[in-house]
Design a protein around this nucleic acid. Structure first.
Length: 197
DNA sequence: TGCTGGATTCACT
DNA sequence: GTGAATCCAGCAC
């Protein structure tokens, strides 16, 4: 299976990358356990002209990784509880990123259940940005790692047909006012693993 | 040095 | 539908 290369991540239009990430496979290996899953829901965040983005008009130690070259992971802690996983895109000094909001489990489902404290797989195993990081074993320890390495990486799958892709507004970013209206959330139509309608 | 609030989830009414 | 859990970056003093 071919690993997704750096050209894919360094693409200039973050919303386009977010859309093309649908249906691609995300793989994690912590040294002992391997898990992978298909990406079924994403959101695009742009460092310029988008108040919903952490890096909007802010370059701080926390957001520095988003200013790096595409293909790195930006993981941060939300509400003191949940780790959220982003893929940095675009060239160096352009702070764009794609938030992975939901995935469909493929391999290592028993390991994911164990990490989530569940006895058997249910739709809420990975149907949300905080849930999938827990299931895949991703935490702030993975912040800044390169996605062409051997811990977290993506593999190329057949693209999703455009008729199966739904575009909507992003979730949970009302504080960004008019930028919250941007149609930068993408998900696979009728997929049972998406976070919400 | 101290305060505020969030790209969420889950249990409870 | 509502509210609690829980940490730390960012910013105001």
């Amino acid at each position: 299976m071919a690993k997704i290369g750096k050209n894919f991540y360094e693409h200039r239009y973050v919303a386009e990358v977010a859309e093309r990430l649908l249906g691609q496979k995300i793989c994690t290996f912590n040294g002992k356990e391997y898990t992978d899953a298909l990406i079924v829901e994403t959101e695009a965040y742009c460092g310029r002209n988008d108040k919903a983005c952490h890096a909007h008009e802010k370059r701080t130690p926390r957001t520095e990784v988003m200013y790096g070259a595409g293909g790195h992971a930006y993981v941060y802690l939300c509400y003191g509880i949940h780790h959220l996983f982003n893929i940095v895109t675009n060239e160096k000094d352009q702070a764009d990123a794609v938030l992975i909001r939901a995935v469909e489990p493929i391999s290592g489902i028993d390991i994911m259940c164990q990490r989530r404290g569940m006895d058997k797989p249910r739709p809420n195993l990975t149907s949300g940005p905080g849930k999938l990081t827990q299931a895949l074993g991703i935490s702030v320890q993975q912040n800044g790692i390169y996605l062409l390495g051997s811990r977290v990486w993506l593999e190329e799958m057949a693209p999703i047909h455009p008729s199966k892709i739904v575009v909507s507004q992003r979730i949970g970013v009302d504080y960004a006012k008019e930028d919250a209206l941007k149609p930068w959330r993408f998900y696979i139509k009728d997929n049972p693993w998406i976070s919400r309608k």
